[in-house]
């Protein structure tokens, strides 16, 4: 792209500048410009039109549902992810390696496939479908189905961010706490968890961002029932397909702002983590 990359005389001021400019060009082209266009489109017919579009009942329902999904998924995955990370780093048990691979599975499997699997398992003609139907439980086209799909897709985030930190901790701090009389609970709350600190928060935020934006898996299991099983991303798609561009872009802008806030918080934490607090012994 730039001649600077080919120079072999080390990175001089000029080539450094060129590289920086190139990086910013890419960022502008791929990140800032689209978001800018997004807002421009949303506000094309003025702020009032955008706000009216947002106060539509189905849109509000979608926002409420998405908020509910995030509010449920994040705590569940935080707790499960923490314990998975703890078990995987502090204990050696048969099948540990397999479990490590399985935990990463949601990252490599297409969300659509994940959604289809849930339908195959719990759908009316699925394996457990008849059993669940007989007990009056419906998993597909309902909130539990959306929750399951989102849980699956966002499961790896907490585990993957916390594991390296726990790995690095080693066992000595916990042994020290044990020798001082701490039981498992105080040990976990006072030593293990605080020491994962920033990494845990970072993982939780990633999980939140992803569960807010998840489309594929949710799309398959939700059934797209407006006002009932449509999350914000699904509602955006529906609006867009219905040529309601202003509404679609307005809602998309809301989603973008929410994700932006989450990513920004994460950036702030990572930045603070990089500063003094520093290594221990």
């Amino acid at each position: 792209m730039s001649g600077a990359l080919q120079t072999r005389s080390g990175i001089g001021t000029l080539s450094g500048l060129a590289l920086t400019l190139a990086a910013w060009a890419v960022v502008t082209l791929l990140l800032i410009l689209p978001v800018g266009i997004l807002f421009a489109q949303a506000l094309r017919q003025g702020l009032d039109a955008a706000l009216t579009a947002l106060s539509d009942d189905d849109v509000l329902a979608a926002i409420r549902l998405s908020a509910l999904v995030v509010a449920l998924v994040v705590p569940i995955n935080t707790i499960c992810g923490l314990f998975a990370a703890y078990a995987l780093t502090k204990f050696d048990f048969p099948g540990r390696a397999a479990l490590l691979v399985l935990i990463e599975l949601p990252l490599s499997v297409s969300p659509v496939v994940a959604g289809l699997v849930w339908v195959l398992l719990f759908g009316r003609h699925g394996w457990f479908g008849p059993f669940l139907a007989a007990h009056g439980v419906r998993m597909v086209f309902t909130l539990p189905g959306i929750l399951l799909a989102t849980l699956f897709v966002t499961f790896p985030f907490v585990t993957r961010t916390v594991m390296p930190v726990m790995e690095a901790q080693g066992r000595q701090h916990e042994e020290a706490a044990t020798m001082l009389g701490a039981g498992f609970v105080s040990l976990f709350w006072r030593v293990t968890l605080p020491e994962t600190g920033a990494a845990l928060v970072s993982g939780v935020l990633l999980c939140a961002a992803r569960s807010l934006g998840e489309f594929g898996a949710v799309s398959v299991v939700s059934g797209h029932i407006p006002g009932l099983t449509e999350t914000v991303p699904l509602r955006i798609e529906a609006l867009y397909n219905g040529y309601e561009t202003v509404a679609a872009f307005a809602l998309a802008a809301v989603l973008a702002v929410a994700s932006g806030l989450i990513v920004g918080m994460r950036g702030l934490i990572e930045w603070r983590r990089g500063r003094p607090a520093g290594e221990s012994n």
């Binding site: 000595q172 042994e175 044990t178 020798m179 009389g181 030593v191 221990s280 012994n281």
Partner: peptide
């Protein structure tokens, strides 16, 4: 271990950072 009431100083001190 936690009920033995033994003071233990670890090789790298293992202070809670």
């Amino acid at each position: 271990a936690r009920q033995r009431n033994i003071g233990f100083v670890f090789q790298n001190y293992a202070l809670f950072r």
